[in-house]
């Protein structure tokens, strides 16, 4: 092929439009002809600049790309996994894993309930964030498309408001938990249950006090914070609950509170300085309200 023919084909070569034979001929020529190689680079640069020019226009009315809902759901799960939320759904059987020997109430697993609650939440979030905003341009379209777009926008505003409300609520819970623990605790929303914030805070408080007593080796305090049923189990096998000698505990993450079979539940991810300083384990708490007092009814350990 002559230089002239090569130049004619360069644009298609850059776009990937040439068939394999043509493309390999162009490539061979470029490898041996410096002038055409320069032309190739210059053309590629110019084409790239042109393609980028699209992005130089910013819609003043926000025009988000419509995300692929399924891809978004995967991304969301990945993000949750990085934050450790996925860990809340990853339950090992009692006795499984490094911390499994630390106890747990056999025969009762909340894992499924939590996983379902988390899945419901995930769907709600995906539904919320998959709705993009509307262009004012398109709002000028006549009914009924204009109204369909207006509906999208309206729903989107509602969802954004809900997301913001959730974020505000979590911020508030985190501030409270951080105050109680002195740790930088990440509060993870897991449930759509309408547990009032004061209940969530009371439940989280008793749980944090219980954990503190576990690490202080303070059996009496633990029992004060426990229902009679749990007191009996603590008496029967105190070693499953005591953490004295495990060093200092640090709480990394807590869920907000959900209701399952009449119990307030929260999961806590933490690490201590005894064995695996950089590994976390999880305690799953069930809390009951007896009279005016919130008491721990059950605690199981997850790896």
């Amino acid at each position: 092929m002559s230089c002239h023919e090569i130049r004619e084909s360069l644009e298609g070569y850059i776009a990937g439009d040439l068939d394999d034979l043509e493309a390999s001929r162009v490539a061979e020529h470029l490898a041996t002809c410096p002038a055409c190689a320069v032309a190739y680079e210059e053309t590629r640069l110019l084409v790239g600049e042109l393609k980028d020019l699209r992005n130089a226009f910013q819609p003043t009315c926000v025009f988000e790309e419509v995300p692929d809902v399924s891809a978004y759901a995967r991304k969301r799960e990945d993000a949750a996994g990085r934050e450790g939320a996925a860990g809340l759904e990853r339950h090992a059987a009692p006795g499984d894993g490094a911390r499994g020997t630390r106890g747990g109430v056999p025969g009762r697993s909340w894992s499924r309930a939590w996983a379902v609650a988390a899945a419901v939440l995930l769907v709600a979030l995906v539904g919320a964030l998959a709705v993009a905003t509307v262009p004012s341009l398109a709002q000028k379209l006549p009914l009924p498309v204009g109204s369909a777009i207006a509906d999208l926008e309206h729903e989107n505003q509602l969802m954004r408001a809900q997301n913001q409300a959730m974020r505000d609520r979590i911020d508030k819970l985190e501030a409270r938990v951080n105050e109680l623990t002195g740790d930088d605790v990440n509060v993870v929303p897991t449930s759509e249950d309408d547990v009032p914030d004061e209940v969530t805070m009371a439940v989280q408080q008793v749980v944090i006090e219980f954990i503190t007593a576990q690490y202080a080796g303070d059996l009496e305090r633990m029992k004060e914070l426990a229902t009679p049923a749990l007191q009996a189990r603590i008496d029967a096998s105190p070693d499953e609950y005591l953490r004295d000698g495990a060093g200092t505990v640090s709480i990394a993450q807590m869920t907000d509170v959900s209701i399952y079979e009449g119990l307030y539940m929260t999961f806590v991810r933490m690490s201590d300085t005894k064995e695996f300083t950089d590994s976390q384990y999880q305690e799953n708490f069930g809390v009951k309200k007896l009279g005016e007092t919130y008491l721990v009814e059950s605690m199981e350990t997850d790896a």
């Binding site: 226009f57 790309e65 993009a132 262009p135 398109a138 777009i149």
Partner: peptide
Amino acid sequence: NDRAFAVLVRLHERALYCTAF
């Protein structure tokens, strides 16, 4: 399905606009 059309509008508006401009 007008909602689907609304999404198509959003997907293509910017590129069409730059072209028309």
